[in-house]
Computed example of a mutant assay.
Amino acid sequence: MNGKGTKARWWARTATTFVCVGAAVAATAPSAFAGATGCNDRTCIAVAGSGLRVESVTASTTWNGDFNGHLHIYGGGIDRNSATGFWGYHQKFTVPVGRDLPNGSVLCAEGWEHTGGGLQLRGRACAEVHF
């Protein structure tokens, strides 16, 4: 048997295997990801959506993270402040978006406590919209 022919068939089988495995992985991998949640210090962010499409961005406080002040959501062309008041656990400030954001957009939520001496940052939680 010819060594070159055997080697050629081996390369053809190997290449076919890699193409099939690559196609299977591509078919099962999510195409893009907008939905994310996370917290930092006393502030949390939740991004609802699929792919690059963001339906809404929500800011909230953590458990025992209550404060008097406001929440701020920004990034990806969004810049909104909540009303000033008491923000406790389970209270949410939601900004409807309803559109695609550019790949790599970073959305952030900040909690700002209003104190006698001014504003005190109570956390900045961010999430990236990406493929």
Rank of each mutant, 00 (worst) to 15 (best):
L101V: 06
T61A: 09
F93C: 03
E113G: 00
H72R: 10
A48P: 03
I78Q: 01
C108Y: 01
V95T: 01
W112I: 07
P102Y: 05
Y89Q: 12
C108N: 03
Q120T: 13
S50W: 05
G111C: 05
R53D: 11
C108I: 07
T94S: 14
L71A: 00
E55M: 10
I78D: 08
T94I: 08
W112F: 12
E110V: 03
G116R: 13
L121A: 09
N103L: 10
L101A: 08
S50I: 06
F86E: 13
I78A: 01
G98M: 02
L119D: 15
H70R: 11
Q91E: 15
P102V: 07
I45E: 03
V57M: 03
W112L: 10
H114A: 11
S105W: 03
T61W: 04
G104V: 10
H72P: 05
T62A: 15
T94W: 01
S50A: 13
L71E: 05
A48C: 00
G88F: 03
I73N: 00
Y74C: 01
G116K: 11
D100T: 11
L107D: 06
N103V: 11
E55Q: 14
R99N: 07
G116F: 08
V47F: 06
A46Q: 12
G75K: 02
W112T: 05
P96A: 00
D79R: 09
V95C: 07
T115N: 09
N103K: 13
T115R: 13
G88D: 12
G98F: 00
N81R: 15
E113V: 02
V54T: 06
G65S: 10
H72T: 02
V57A: 13
Y89N: 13
G69V: 03
S60Q: 09
H90M: 13
W112Q: 04
T61N: 05
L52S: 08
G98T: 04
V47Y: 01
C39V: 02
L119K: 11
D79I: 00
G49V: 01
V95F: 05
G104R: 04
H90I: 11
A83W: 04
G75R: 05
C44D: 00
S82L: 06
P96W: 00
V54C: 11
T61L: 01
G88R: 12
